[in-house]
């Protein structure tokens, strides 16, 4: 029982990380049709910005908790700003040129990771976090590391926040309509490009948040962490249905749990089981669990 509880909570926490990355990817693709291969680099930049600012603030802020909070805010701001800048400078000129967009985001991903390696080196770094995060809490006989609960709560909060944003705000309305029919949104007099930048910034912020949490989850940050997690986030987006936030959330939970359960039974097979799950989903529902599919889309 205790093993099952531990696997379930850690699986949900892993799913939470995937969701934070996948939500931005899904919104960006749904609205703009951009497959953003640089999204993993936003995660890396966010985690490095948080780590670097934490190091720099050591002499200024004595409290670990406060320093951690400030450095997380800086990491998120940097992630959002870099993502917005990428949209404005690199993606916008290539609007509707999908092949070029893919090439640019792949190239950018390599370049940003190389830049991080060149500046901070290829070695791993450790985030300075409040000790409570690395402690454990008893649940169903299992000692579950506290950061798992934080990841789940943060992802739940982001999901609720995103849904509320999409449901109740003018920009949310524009994004939901734009995912359906971008041209018609502009034909109503709306400058959809502002929504593009906003969606990129939100995606960058969520990815940076995932970067910080991944740094805690894996007890380290390294330049390639974002790229490794991006592969699973893409799988989550496809299983959930491109453009669907709820779909991404459901798929992220499924992928996280399956990966943990299978890896427990047979270490290393978890990744394979996720790919198998992707293949089965595509065969049964080509548009994903919550997506629409047509042969021409």
């Amino acid at each position: 029982m205790d093993t099952f509880v531990l696997l379930t909570v850690t699986g949900l926490a892993l799913g939470a990380l995937y969701f934070l990355i996948a939500s931005g990817l899904s919104l960006i693709y749904g609205l703009m049709g951009v497959l953003n291969f640089a999204h993993g680099a936003f995660l890396t930049i966010g985690s490095y910005a948080a780590w670097w600012s934490s190091v720099k603030l050591q002499g200024t802020i004595g409290s670990v908790g406060l320093r951690f909070a400030v450095s997380v805010v800086i990491g998120l701001a940097v992630g959002a700003a870099v993502a917005a800048l990428v949209e404005l400078v690199l993606i916008r000129p290539l609007y509707l040129r999908h092949i070029e967009q893919v090439l640019v985001t792949v190239g950018l991903s390599f370049a940003l990771i190389a830049l991080v390696q060149a500046y901070w080196g290829p070695d791993i770094h450790e985030l300075d976090v409040p000790s409570w995060l690395n402690g454990t809490t008893g649940l169903g006989g299992a000692h579950v590391p506290n950061y798992n609960f934080v990841e789940i709560l943060v992802a739940g909060g982001v999901l609720a926040g995103l849904l509320a944003f999409l449901r109740f705000t003018r920009y949310g309305l524009i994004i939901r309509a734009g995912v359906e029919n971008r041209a018609m949104v502009t034909a109503l007099g709306i400058d959809v490009k502002k929504a593009f930048t906003l969606v990129f910034a939100i995606g960058g912020l969520a990815a940076a948040l995932a970067g910080v949490l991944a740094g805690i989850h894996f007890s380290e940050i390294d330049p390639t962490q974002g790229t490794s997690l991006l592969i699973f986030a893409f799988i989550v987006v496809v299983i959930g249905g491109l453009g669907s936030i709820v779909g991404s959330a459901v798929a992220a939970v499924m992928v996280g749990l399956v990966q943990q359960y299978v890896n427990y039974k047979s270490s290393g097979i978890g990744d394979l089981s996720v790919v198998l799950m992707l293949a089965i989903t595509l065969l049964i529902r080509p548009g994903g669990l919550f997506g629409k599919w047509s042969p021409t889309h």
Partner: peptide, 10 residues
Amino acid sequence: PEDREVFAGL
């Protein structure tokens, strides 16, 4: 527009 193009999900 031709074919209405209402936003079906809204």
